[in-house]
Design a protein around this nucleic acid. Structure first.
Lengths: 341, 341
DNA sequence: ATTGCAAATGCAATCGATTGCATTTTTGTA
DNA sequence: TACAAAAATGCAATCGATTGCATTTGCAAT
């Protein structure tokens, strides 16, 4: 009968005492060092698992000056102190979490993110992690540049900016904005609005794609049709309803997210417009719920989950000192009924 | 002109050398110990911030055998290896993150959660954290019991179970199921279906509320009207469509989540039913998107964000050895058009 | 000047694991 | 058998902060 270990084995030394060797030997054995005799190694590993011992990662990481943690910061609207209810974020988070687990890294989630970009460099978020993934740039482009300059390994999901000095992963925003708009034009729409905050690089690029499509069709852009809509659904609806009260002439809307599109459809319907008969709507992201809205949402699909793993690979490469280039993931138009197709 | 510090100050010792005191004194000064002379204390604190020094939390936590980390595990369907696209999870996560930041705790997000409930006790998720919050019980009730028995401070969001030995926080599921069903009955519905996986405690309680409402109205429950629907929208739709093909007579549906309700509405509409004229639908959660669906969703509101902070307070109390009791948060019917109101 | 006491500061061990550099043991060969 | 080389193991410093206990300093009263 095997005896139950009398007291918990909680350190290398404990195990070394039991085995009658030094703790250096145990450490090497458990790390599969070839310095240690193969038999000794096996014996000690067996002993360790028999006593249900695993190395104390906290001590290990401290000694090795590593954390095996990556922080994730969601850059929300500086204005809306709201929490994101956009499923986009959750999908992205899932992708990142999966990517990290592949490499045995943990995920530290930043709370109250944008509150204090100033002292972010000294926060636990940055100091406790080997690298940081930012989802979105918000309007904090310069703060991100500064952080990258300071040598912190960071990767940002977002859109390109002229003087960017950090590693970037993003969708083809210009392409997405272009194909959304072109498709509406091809459907015969002429007065096409653009809904979204164009101060973020991502939306800027989408807007440029929108403008390009208009130009290509010889349509005059009308600045009354470019509207800054908050990303929070409740607020979005109010703003859109105010807009509709102004009776601005339009027959289509390009939105910068699916949830915004869904809010828009609700507001339009509420105001007596028919979607897509009176006004066509295109969203962005292709979140799972998009195909279930009524009418089903035409949208630009981003492979969000894949984006997560690209972000992870990029930040880890950075940490390991490898050369890494920006990545642009393809964006693809998914046609459903909300655009009149 | 103040000189820029020649080399980074990276430890207590560095700062102590500069100040000409021992590192014990610096440590105490920075921790506001009254042992240290008030002036010395101020001087050292000023010096620290001048040199942009903050204590190394990793070393500190190691020394103090603490982590100031709470893990969060989302219990997904064992079957669907899917990632949750339900905004419910994101809201909950936001509430938890906010609660934790109030107490200067960090949030470690569990990846690939249910995969291995067996060795969860030895995983980093548990070992690296001072406590664990589980969102949902899935079908892992016994594993949770075992973990709690082992002394790990855990709190679970879910429904009550007879032999539960862990701390529980949850909504009033029986009440929610009851009021959803009663409301439909009051609207004149008689053939009311229940959509959801009744193997989880939460849904079991909701189902019992459903049964109670039926009984109270002298309606016979029909087991053909109780349908196990996956929580993933895409799969849900397929299952529901199959169900509709069987031409089972029904005039209303109680769903266990809003996303399921939205999928149901889509499937019903697709099959030619009108919601709510032919079939009324009630959801659960009141996620932000619920009021934007078409028709707007009648649902049971859970204060998800508040739930997050209650979970946090509970697990921290547990960690600090306080007495803590289970919490039941109220659930409230929100009437919108999808039920015919 | 001396003593006593309180306040302030310093010393050194400690947390658990890793690793460069000894040191011991084993192996191979003359 | 002896001796060099190789293989295996041990010693002890180290990471950075905290804290019990010892020691020094400052001040007041005698």
């Amino acid at each position: 009968m095997s005896k139950i270990p009398p007291r918990a084995v909680s350190s290398l030394q404990d195990l070394a005492d039991i085995a009658g060797v030094s703790r250096a030997t145990v450490s090497r054995a458990l790390n599969n060092s070839t310095l240690i005799n193969a038999e000794t190694r096996k014996r000690l590993q067996a002993l360790a698992s028999e006593h249900n011992y695993t190395v104390n990662k906290q001590a290990r990481d401290f000694r090795l000056k590593q954390t095996r943690v990556i922080s994730v910061v969601f850059m929300l609207d500086a204005h809306s102190e709201q929490h994101p209810s956009d499923p986009f974020f959750l999908e992205m988070l899932g992708g990142i979490a999966d990517g990290l687990s592949l490499h045995d890294y943990d995920l530290l989630l930043a709370h109250a993110p944008v509150a204090s970009m100033r002292d972010l460099a000294n926060s636990r978020i940055v100091r406790n992690a080997e690298g940081v993934i930012f989802v979105g740039q918000g309007e904090e482009h310069q703060a991100l540049n500064k952080l990258a300059d300071a040598g912190t390994p960071i990767v940002v999901w977002g859109g390109s900016v002229a003087d960017k000095r950090y590693l970037l992963v993003g969708g083809d925003n210009a392409g997405g904005g272009f194909s959304a708009t072109s498709h509406l034009i091809a459907q015969g729409r002429r007065r096409i609005a653009f809904f979204g905050n164009t101060r973020t690089p991502e939306n800027q690029a989408r807007f440029s794609g929108y403008e390009k499509a208009l130009a290509q069709a010889n349509l005059q852009p009308d600045e009354k049709l470019t509207v800054d809509i908050p990303s929070d659904m409740q607020h979005a609806q109010v703003v859109i309803e105010n807009l509709l009260n102004k009776r601005i002439d339009m027959d289509a809307v390009v939105c910068t997210s699916d949830v915004m599109a869904i809010a828009a459809i609700a507001a339009l319907t509420e105001s007596g417009f028919s979607v897509p008969d009176d006004i066509a709507v295109v969203g962005y992201d292709d979140i799972p719920i998009a195909s279930f809205s009524s009418p089903p949402l035409t949208t630009i699909r981003q492979s969000i989950h894949q984006a997560g793993s690209v972000l992870v690979e990029s930040v880890l490469a950075l940490i390991n000192g490898h050369q890494v280039a920006d990545t642009t993931l393809s964006s693809k138009l998914v046609v459903r009924k909300s655009c009149g197709a």
